[in-house]
Write a protein that binds this DNA or RNA. Structure first.
Length: 760
DNA sequence: TAAAATCCCT
């Protein structure tokens, strides 16, 4: 009976323990009032007693402390001020009593001493190992559990943490302890364990509900960019946020924004939306500020989700969440990217107070907003309007034009072909003291290259190098593509080497442009070298790159290399598209391998790819090469009746050429008429084919008629046309008509006007 | 400490 009542009393004391944290801290000054046990000894006297060697310790004098006031043992242990002595004390008592509370208190004291130690982490771990070595016979107090979990968490000892947590009885568990465990588990990537602990904390009427520190830990982890171990499932994120908010624990603006940003970056707009709305619903405008909404708006904008952007903006207004200048920046950017530039300008005018309701929002447009608009205007060819905004910026202190402002405008004028204005803007920015960046350099170089001024581009680049501005992968891509474009492959290769030796790190695109240039030039060996260099640099080929290479190898009739590419595509998981199949079908048709060509087409259809006009063209071309024009015409008829893929200019040209070569000029002429009816515009190649046919059949009148039609179609003759017609017209004495034709006058004798009079 | 703007390949 007596023992039982004592135990009960002890348990009551025990329950008070979490609140003794602060008193423990106060004890560290070792100035607690003298406490006396039943044997008349004060705490100070006991501490003195324990300073004696171990064999002088008197258990009987100590005993009352063990039962009457075990919490005094904590003070005594701390005042020993020595961890080895504390351990002696534990061993001494452990040999003499079964009383767990006493041991627990002394152990707690030892842990407190360890936290004071300069190398506290090591000492705490040592005490943990000690406790483990005696089989965990020492029960843990709440404070002990807290200290040990904190240290195990730091040491990332997940297993030990979990075991320790399980050992704690539920009355010793507290929110603080759970938080420490969570922190440790998250630190070592043990999400599953952490979620389990959180489940307990988040239960209804939990003894250790989540507090703000729990929120700190959990929300920080949810917002982290990358983490080891597995990441959270969408439902887990939603569940945690919802339940924590239901317990009144909300993320701060920073963490909420970070969480939403992360979700949006991982293309999880749906979850991001839900998260924000849970916090909005449970916490209201106090818990959600514009920054978090901005993060979601930006994510929605990236996915072009206009509807939800509008909905969120409306909700912000309804809840009284004040939009910031960034909010409007995102909105304007989105409208510009959707090419809805006039709506963007309307929003902008509202901010400037130019529209109706003078600036109700109280947000001044900043540099970014101006830049966004200027870029938007330039991208739709309204660079002059952009220029007027530049002037407006110059008059405002808070939004002076910066490098990006000029970059946008320079690019706009370059793309519009106004290189002169682009150069002028460049000089202007230098005059205004706005520093050009590598983007400025790239924009100018690319603009000059795209307008046939490769030499000027090189000059500009060298000039900038002299000013200490280095080029990057983008600069070299522009130059390499330009030199490939004018078939100066050696120069392109030289720039590629320059790039590598100048220490510029190439991106995948610069490799792609060189591979494409080399392949189109038929230099497949060089292309292969670049491919292996690309792989060495850790990049992979993409679909278009494979297509370009396959096409190059086909032209060189290197079938084994084509198959090599196709195999590689399969291994690396790059799925062939219609372009790949068309290239193959076209090649197989040209070498006359109809069987393989038809197998490839079957596979293409099996893969769910519909034959395109190019596929039909390849097949028709193949039949024509085999002099099987009848079969080619049959396919053509099929295309005409199946309106899904109507024949285009190329298909007509192929057939007209083949019919003419097959001496069926009448049919070819009727196809020309068919084109006119169907509204398919012939090009120079088409006319060259039919001219050859009518020349071989000496159908002079038909030739005149076609010449007039060629002029009507605004299609100009090239050197092939002239070759076909000159000798023939010379022989039949009609060379004057050819002159008229070249000048763009009608020549058909059925014309009412006298053509010759017009010619001279 | 998080949220909006510029340049390159097919």
């Amino acid at each position: 009976m007596l023992v039982q009542s004592k135990l009960l009393r002890l348990r009551r004391i025990h329950r008070l323990l979490p609140s003794t944290f602060s008193s423990v801290r106060r004890c560290r000054s070792y100035s607690s009032p003298p406490l006396r046990n039943d044997a008349g000894l004060t705490v100070t006297q006991v501490v003195e007693l324990l300073q004696n060697p171990l064999n002088h310790w008197d258990y009987d004098k100590l005993r009352p402390f063990l039962f009457e006031a075990s919490h005094h043992l904590l003070h005594i242990t701390i005042r020993l001020n020595s961890i080895p002595k504390a351990l002696d004390f534990i061993n001494f008592l452990g040999d003499r009593t079964e009383h767990h509370q006493a041991l627990s208190r002394v152990f707690e004291g030892a842990l407190e001493l360890a936290t004071q130690h300069p190398n506290s982490q090591k000492e705490l771990l040592m005490l943990h190992s000690y406790r483990k070595s005696i089989g965990g016979r020492i029960a843990l107090t709440s404070r002990s559990g807290f200290l040990l979990l904190k240290c195990l968490g730091k040491a990332q000892m997940v297993e030990d943490s979990l075991i320790l947590f399980k050992e704690l009885d539920s009355s010793s568990k507290s929110s603080e302890i759970c938080n420490e465990l969570l922190k440790g588990l998250f630190r070592s990537g043990g999400i599953d364990g952490a979620l389990h602990v959180l489940d307990e904390m988040l239960e209804r009427d939990s003894d250790f509900p989540p507090n703000n520190f729990t929120g700190e830990v959990v929300f920080r982890v949810l917002g982290e960019q990358e983490r080891r171990g597995r990441s959270f499932a969408d439902e887990e994120i939603m569940g945690l946020v919802t339940k924590l908010c239901e317990h009144g624990v909300f993320p701060d603006t920073f963490k909420l924004t970070q969480m939403i940003t992360k979700l949006c970056r991982h293309r999880k707009n749906g979850v991001a939306w839900e998260v924000l709305h849970v916090v909005m619903r449970l916490g209201g405008a106090v818990a959600v500020e514009a920054a978090s909404c901005n993060a979601l708006l930006a994510g929605l904008g990236r996915e072009r989700d206009i509807q939800r952007m509008n909905k969120l903006m409306a909700e912000m207004e309804e809840m009284g969440i004040k939009p910031s200048v960034v909010t409007f920046g995102i909105l304007v950017n989105h409208l510009c990217k959707a090419r809805r530039i006039d709506e963007a300008l309307q929003v902008f005018d509202k901010l400037r107070g130019k529209g109706e309701g003078n600036n109700r929002v109280g947000v001044e447009p900043d540099v970014v907003l101006f830049n966004t608009l200027i870029d938007g205007l330039c991208k739709v060819g309204r660079e002059e309007h952009g220029l007027s905004l530049l002037e407006e910026m110059k008059t405002k202190k808070q939004s002076r034009p910066n490098t990006i402002t000029y970059n946008c405008l320079i690019d706009g004028f370059c793309k519009a072909g106004n290189i002169g204005k682009a150069r002028e803007l460049y000089s202007q920015m230098i005059e205004e003291g706005v520093q050009p960046s590598v983007v400025t350099l790239n924009t100018m170089v690319n603009g000059l290259c795209k307008h046939g001024k490769v030499h000027n581009a090189v000059e500009f680049f060298n000039e900038m190098k002299g000013k200490g501005l280095k080029g990057n992968a983008v600069t070299y891509t522009a130059l390499i593509s330009a030199f490939c474009g004018v078939n100066n492959i050696d120069k392109a290769m030289q720039y590629f080497d320059d790039m590598l030796s100048s220490g510029c790190s190439p991106d995948a695109i610069v490799y792609y442009s060189l591979i494409s240039g080399l392949s189109t030039a038929g230099r497949m060996d060089d292309a292969s070298v670049v491919v292996s260099r690309l792989k060495q640099a850790g990049f992979g080929l993409d679909l278009t790159c494979y297509n370009v290479l396959i096409s190059g190898f086909c032209k060189k009739k290197k079938l084994e290399r084509v198959y090599e590419m196709l195999n590689e595509m399969e291994v690396t998981g790059v799925k062939p598209d219609i372009v790949t199949y068309n290239t193959l079908v076209s090649y197989l048709g040209k070498i006359g391998d109809f069987e393989t060509a038809s197998n490839v087409m079957k596979r293409m259809i099996k893969e769910g790819l519909e034959p395109s006009v190019v596929t039909y063209g390849a097949v028709i071309h193949a039949y024509c090469l085999k002099k099987n024009v009848d079969e080619a015409m049959k396919i053509f008829e099929q295309m005409c009746s199946n309106s899904k893929v109507p024949p285009n200019t190329v298909i007509y040209s192929i057939l007209i050429d083949a019919l003419c070569k097959n001496s069926n000029v009448e049919k070819a002429v009727s196809l020309m008429d068919d084109m006119k009816i169907k509204g398919v515009r012939p090009n120079t190649t088409t006319y060259n084919a039919i001219f050859k046919g009518v020349r071989d059949k000496k159908m002079l009148q038909k030739a005149f008629e076609l010449m007039d039609r060629m002029i009507e179609d605004a299609c100009s003759p090239d050197y092939v046309t002239m070759e076909i017609l000159t000798e023939w017209f010379d022989a039949v004495g009609e060379i004057e008509k050819l002159k008229c034709f070249v000048e763009g006058y009608p020549v058909s004798s059925s014309s009412a006007l006298s053509p010759t009079s017009n010619c001279f």
